[in-house]
Amino acid sequence: MQPEYAIRTVNLQRTYKTKERVLKALDGVDLAVRPGELFGFLGPNGAGKTTTIKILTTLLLPSGGTAEVWGFDVLHEADAVRRHINMVSGGESSGYGLLTVRENLWMFTQFHGMDSKVANKRIDELLEVMGLADRAKTRVSFLSTGLRQKMNYIRGLLTDPDVLFLDEPTLGLDVEAARTLRTYTRHWLDTNPGKTVVLTTHYMQEADELCDRVAIISGGTILACDTPTSLKYSLQQDVVFRLFTTPVAPAFLQAVEQIAGVQSISQRSGDQRDELSLILRDDAILPQVLSQLANHNAGLLSLEKRQPTLEDVFVNLVGHSLSESETTA
């Protein structure tokens, strides 16, 4: 029976205590994800994405609040939760190197108590879909990181979970492999009504393209949660500019932030030039920004007015870009 919520958390908290300090990784996260949704977590390293996933997959105990997956409490009904979930983490080269691809995959179906015949049939199908059929008998130690990740992805789907957690699944994958994975995830959801995917990602475009709803998380708190379109629409009354300039000093950014009507400014440094994302209340504020540019001896290379992106939403909510957050982290 399908529950009302695939995932439901109320005031979810997680604290890590070390000798030196107490770190709040999650600070009151409330979530309600319905069956059939592809739900995304967007945030920098250390924002709380993976901590949330770890709690929901029963790998980590919460310090407070409640969390339910497919109607079961992660703390008191962990075994029941595990019957409905699977997880794929990216950016790691996991797998038993001495086993073949098929053996690795078959082994995990057995942990889930799948019939061997059914398991092998499903392994064949998914190997074919992910373009790994010719590697079925290859030892995992001979696979590239990308191919291992594809194998890992297949492992996640093999047991036909009700809730699939994808933790940065495309990290380290080449463009083609990442696209295959994204396309199949969407296809899997479309052809299996009621299945739910929770995706954490660094990639704005991935979240924008794939997710039905996105939660922007930073510092263990959800800052916003809506469809990508609605999140971007929330910035519609604002004006978004992209500027390419000669390298600017931090003092320039501080000066711009002081200008009334400047919602946010973020900087991405490149080779001999900076890219600035600027969100303003009104077009009329732009001349003041340009004047500051001149005051700080920086030159304007190009200027473009554009539609808001999820990156802009993130900057507007967090105060800086995702890449800046990661540098800070």
């Binding site: 790998l59 595990r82 699977n86 080269s93 996991s94 038993y96 995990f108 942990f111 889930h112």
Partner: peptide
Amino acid sequence: RMGMLKYIAITPSSMYGY
């Protein structure tokens, strides 16, 4: 070394049995 314990831990099987 293998990075697989977490994947075993989230299955409904018995860690002791394994």
